[in-house]
């Protein structure tokens, strides 16, 4: 299934295309929302808002600047961070209980086997990081916390936070670099 074409139909107000896109991407979107929010009800709210933004802003998606899935997940992350900043929810550093930690990917037609394998290897590389590095990266990326917020939350000096982030990200960068570039995966500079 061509997700880019579906997105173009969604931009025209095609409800069937919207639901088809939902069926293909919702496990990823909901999985990310669940990872960031830590509970099912909040994750459902985030996923719903992300898909509604897809419905109302599909015309702003630019295929040349990244994949549709990446664009949608970037929207999801922004929505989740907005929710987290508005609430007093404490970050959940571990995997939420509903997540499928067995990692049985449901490949969309847009994703190649190489991409999926690369994401999977990155996931396992994150899991293999020392706990303190993993916690620092989780706080920063999945919970939108600044250095100083992470230091307070983890109860460590600011310099320790910087070191843990740098060491952890350097390991992940090396793992990521082992995989050949296949298709554009940079979703960050798109329309959201």
């Amino acid at each position: 299934m061509d997700l880019v074409r579906l997105a173009a139909r969604v931009a025209q107000g095609d409800q069937e295309a919207f639901l088809a896109l939902y069926d293909h991407t919702s496990p990823k979107v909901y999985g990310l929302a669940l990872r960031m929010m830590g509970d099912a009800m909040a994750a459902e709210e985030v996923a719903q808002e992300a898909f509604l933004r897809l419905w109302t802003r599909a015309e702003t998606f630019r295929p040349g600047r990244g994949s549709l899935l990446g664009w949608l997940l970037t929207i999801t992350r922004h929505v989740a961070l907005d929710h987290l900043r508005r609430s007093t929810r404490r970050p959940q550093l571990a995997e939420p209980p509903d997540a499928d930690t067995g990692w049985e990917p449901r490949l969309s037609d847009e994703a190649t086997q190489t991409e999926e394998a690369r994401w999977r290897s990155l996931y396992f590389a994150v899991q293999a990081l020392p706990d303190e590095q993993q916690a620092a990266i989780t706080c920063a990326y999945y919970h939108g916390m600044s250095h100083s917020q992470i230091a307070v939350y983890l109860g460590v000096p600011l310099g320790t936070v910087k070191t843990r982030l740098r060491l952890g990200m350097e390991k992940l960068r090396q793992v990521w670099a082992e995989w050949p570039e296949d298709t554009p995966t940079d979703p960050s500079d798109t329309g959201d």
Binding site: T74, T76, T101
Partner: peptide, 20 residues
């Protein structure tokens, strides 16, 4: 690129039926 990959490097989860 790693940070963007972290978006994808999350286990999938099936949303509740009522969301659709």
């Amino acid at each position: 690129a790693v940070a963007d990959g972290l978006l994808m490097a999350v286990p999938e989860a099936m949303p509740p039926d009522n969301l659709r």
